[in-house]
Simulated scan of single mutants.
Amino acid sequence: MYSFGGVVRKIIHIDADCFFAALEMRDAPHLRDLPIAVGGSSNGRGVISTCNYPARKFGIRSAMAAAHALRLCPDLILRPHRFEVYRQASKAMKAIFYDYTDLVEPLSLDEAFLDVSAVSRCDGSATRIAEEIRARVFSEVGITCSAGVANNKFLAKVASDWQKPNGITVITPEQNDAFSRALPVAKLSGVGKVTAAKLASMGLYSCADVRECGLEVLLKRFGKFGVRLHERAYGRDDRPVLPSRERLSIGVEHTYDHDLPSGACIAQLPALLGELRGRITKAQASAKITKLFVKVKFSDFVSTTVERRCTVLDDAGYVELLKQAMARSSLKIRLLGVGVKVVGDSVGVQLALF
């Protein structure tokens, strides 16, 4: 059980259900039972940002190419982004969160951690606070959200996804060990397809397997990340809820209507870098640059990123990085991105909307 100053930690993770799509259905109720997705484009290019649950029955998922989504569901209704609507809804949700605690850590427009350890409202019950917040979001914003309640951030986030949509899962301190032991490794933060495959090659499929493997083996195979794997396998996470988030990167990316041959990509850099400069200036981050990076997504949807240390924007440097990235595949390119890594500045800015 985690405690600070004698106070038992009570962490809530709130996550809106299919946020963009939920707001589209709120404003156009006749779409509620139809498969809809937000993102993509009228010609099927681009990527799905999110979709509602009727669309998910066809296998459609976030980050899927719109063209592929339309093949899975020809009747899919593609809606364009309405970012101002999403921002206003996000602002309304956060206003509700701050009614309960100042310790709110936004993760994106539609999710956040709340530390309610010292909150006396609802008789100090984190479960009742989470239920009250969910009811208010539905009443005041017009969408549903799911919640996870636990004594640390890792388990609270896992729990919020446990009974989606419109559900709540509470993990008491007494349940931590059994709950985390049974988790598949894919539920651990930082474990993507590549790491999951490495773990599988070691015969590690669940947190119980990771526990039995032992810290020494994990350190040898994964370095420092092995420590985090070991801690999460035991359901441990002592990270505090941070009311302001550090900005770590600023970027611009674009998906093209037609896949580009490598020879045409360098010509796209000036426009991308022009937009990037504008964003860096707006964020007042010109003096905080530590690295440059280029992202390339090939026609088979495999992405690669190349970066280098640098404290100023360097057009020639981006050309070299792009050449290195393109050399990793002979396929045409559907997406280009450029960006910078910056020194954390503890500003409350979220970079989800490139």
Score class of each variant (00 low, 15 high):
residue 324 Q to T: 14
residue 43 N to H: 12
residue 328 R to A: 08
residue 329 S to P: 07
residue 182 A to F: 03
residue 80 P to E: 07
residue 101 T to E: 00
residue 17 D to N: 13
residue 333 I to T: 08
residue 260 L to T: 11
residue 75 D to I: 05
residue 274 G to I: 04
residue 197 A to Q: 13
residue 174 E to I: 07
residue 265 C to Y: 07
residue 332 K to A: 14
residue 14 I to W: 10
residue 90 S to W: 04
residue 295 K to P: 11
residue 52 N to V: 08
residue 76 L to P: 00
residue 160 S to W: 00
residue 55 A to D: 08
residue 16 A to C: 15
residue 271 A to F: 03
residue 47 V to E: 02
residue 27 D to E: 13
residue 24 E to F: 01
residue 211 R to L: 07
residue 23 L to R: 08
residue 262 S to E: 14
residue 111 E to K: 07
residue 38 V to T: 02
residue 152 N to F: 00
residue 66 A to H: 05
residue 257 D to G: 10
residue 31 L to D: 08
residue 349 V to I: 15
residue 319 V to Q: 14
residue 190 G to V: 10
residue 161 D to E: 12
residue 117 S to D: 11
residue 123 D to W: 06
residue 315 D to G: 08
residue 162 W to R: 06
residue 38 V to F: 03
residue 142 G to D: 02
residue 105 E to F: 07
residue 184 P to G: 10
residue 102 D to E: 03
residue 117 S to A: 11
residue 306 V to M: 15
residue 247 R to P: 05
residue 324 Q to E: 14
residue 327 A to L: 09
residue 22 A to R: 05
residue 297 K to E: 06
residue 156 A to E: 03
residue 337 G to L: 05
residue 144 T to D: 00
residue 73 C to V: 07
residue 217 V to N: 02
residue 249 S to I: 02
residue 351 L to P: 00
residue 168 I to P: 00
residue 79 R to K: 15
residue 133 I to F: 02
residue 44 G to T: 05
residue 194 V to S: 15
residue 282 K to P: 12
residue 54 P to M: 04
residue 2 Y to L: 15
